[in-house]
Nucleic acid binder design. Structure first.
Lengths: 225, 225
DNA sequence: GCTCTTGTTGTACGAACGTTCAACAAGCAT
DNA sequence: ATGCTTGTTGAACGTTCGTACAACAAGAGC
C-alpha cells in the first residue's frame, strides 16, 4: 500500500503523466473492436450490439468505431467475416488440402475428419453458437450479410458434397451428394440450435454421432476404419 | 370526385363527425396487437419489434400496447405463445388424438401424419420462419422466452418419441426413440433455417423427404403403405 | 527539444426508443 | 337526451441510440 508504484516513481522523476490512451495500428485497433463486438454479441445477442456497449467492452471512446468502420452495420459484417466466415473457410481449406494429398487421406477418412471438425470444441462452443444465432436473425433481414452468408454456405456445401461423392464413387454407391450435404448442414445447424436453446437436450458427442449416422445411412460406415 | 360519399351524407343529415376510433373488447384488441406485432417480426425481424412500428401496423395510438400488456417484453411472450406455441401444441394435440383412437390410425400412419404436418404450407411458410428465427435469437437471451420454449419443445419431443417408439415396438426394432426425436427436430429446424436464409437451397418437398429418410433409416418405411 | 501527423477523445446533436398519464370520447345504460 | 364507464388517444418524459466533428495528445521523425 505504501510501496511506491513504478508509475509513481516515473511521474516523480520526469513529472510526466501516464498516457491517457495508446495509439494502435489501424488493423490492430480494428481487430480489438471486432473482438469486443463479438463478445457483446455472444453475451447479449443482437440487442447488445451497440456503439456504447462495444466501446465500453473494448475500453475505448465512443467515437472510435465510426473512425475505423464505415458504420455499425459495417462492423457487424466484419464480425461475421471474422468469427464465422474465417472458421468455416478454415474447414473448407483443410478439407481441400486433405483431398489434394490423396495418398495419406483415403476418401472416408477425409470425410470423417470434415465431419468431426464440425463438433470440435473450438467450433461447437456455447459462445460461438450465440454468435451464429444472433447473426442468423440478422442475415434474414440484412442484404449484405445475406450475400456473404450464401457465398460461404455454397462453398461449404460444395466441398462437403465433393467429399461425400468421393466416398460414394469409391464404394460404388448411388448417392445424391449435394442433397445429402445440404441435409447434413441442416442437421448440424439444427443440433447447434437445440443445444443453444437448451443445453440439456444434446451433448457434442451425441451431436457428432447423429451427424455420422445421417451420412453412414447413405455411404456406409465412416468411423470404424 | 363530386359524388357524395356515404359518410358525407351522414354528416350532413345528423351533423355527426365520423368516430375517430372504435372501442374493442380487451381480448379482441389484444389479438389485433399480437397479430400486428407478429407481422412486424416476420417482415423486419427483432429490430422492427418496437412500440412505434407495431402500433402503426395495427393502426392504433402509441399508448395502447402498455395499456393491454405489461410491457413490450410481455407482448413478445404473447407473440411467441400465439404464433409458435399454439401451432406446435396443435400438432401435439392432433398426434395424441390419433394415438388415442388406435383403430383408425396404425402407428406408422400416425407418425407419417405428424412428420407431414411439419412441412405443411401452413407451418413451413416463409413468414413463419422469419418469426421463428427472430424469436430464436431472443430465446437465448430472454429468460421468460427460454422457459416457454423448453416446455414446448420438451412436450413436442416427447410426443414424437412416443410415436416413433410405437412404430419401433410394432416392428420389433431396437431404436433410441428420444434421441431420434431430438435429431429429427434438429433436422427440421435446420432445414427451415437453410430455407429461410437461402430459399434456393431447399424446397418443402425436399425437406419433407429428408425428414422421412432420417426416420426410415431406423424404423423402416413410413410413406409407402 | 521540437514539429507534424493522425489515432483518439468526448461532447453535441437529432432521432427513436419504452413508458407514463391526464384528457378525451365511444357507446352502453338509463 | 343524458350520464357514466372505460377503452383510447397523444403529448411529454428521460434514456439510449448512431453519427459527426472539433479539440486533443501520443509517438515517430528530425
Amino acid at each position: 500500500m505504501t510501496q511506491a508504484q513504478p508509475e509513481d516513481a516515473k511521474r516523480k522523476r520526469g513529472a510526466k503523466k501516464a498516457p491517457r490512451f495508446s495509439r494502435e495500428q489501424a488493423d490492430v485497433r480494428r481487430s480489438m473492436l471486432i473482438e469486443a463486438a463479438t463478445r457483446c454479441l455472444s453475451v447479449g445477442g443482437i440487442g447488445a450490439f451497440t456503439i456504447d456497449r462495444i466501446c465500453k467492452e473494448a475500453g475505448v471512446s465512443r467515437g472510435l468505431i465510426n473512425h475505423h468502420f464505415e458504420s455499425l452495420d459495417g462492423l457487424l459484417v466484419e464480425v461475421y467475416k471474422s468469427s464465422l466466415y474465417a472458421s468455416v473457410n478454415n474447414q473448407i481449406d483443410e478439407a481441400k488440402r486433405r483431398r489434394a494429398e490423396a495418398s495419406g487421406w483415403p476418401p472416408e477418412a477425409a470425410l470423417a475428419a470434415l465431419v468431426r471438425s464440425n463438433f470440435a470444441p473450438e467450433y461447437f462452443s456455447r459462445e460461438n453458437l450465440l454468435i451464429w444465432l444472433s447473426l442468423w436473425g440478422e442475415i434474414a433481414v440484412n442484404a449484405r450479410l445475406k450475400a456473404a452468408h450464401r457465398e460461404l454456405y455454397d462453398a461449404y456445401r460444395a466441398e462437403l458434397a465433393e467429399d461425400i461423392a468421393a466416398v460414394a464413387v469409391e464404394r460404388g454407391r448411388q448417392v445424391d451428394a449435394s442433397a445429402l450435404a445440404r441435409n447434413f448442414i441442416a442437421l448440424v445447424d439444427g443440433l447447434w440450435l437445440e443445444w443453444c436453446l437448451d443445453e440439456s437436450v444434446v451433448t457434442p458427442q451425441a451431436a457428432e454421432a447423429a451427424g455420422f449416422e445421417m451420412l453412414e445411412a447413405q455411404v456406409g460406415p465412416l468411423r470404424d476404419s
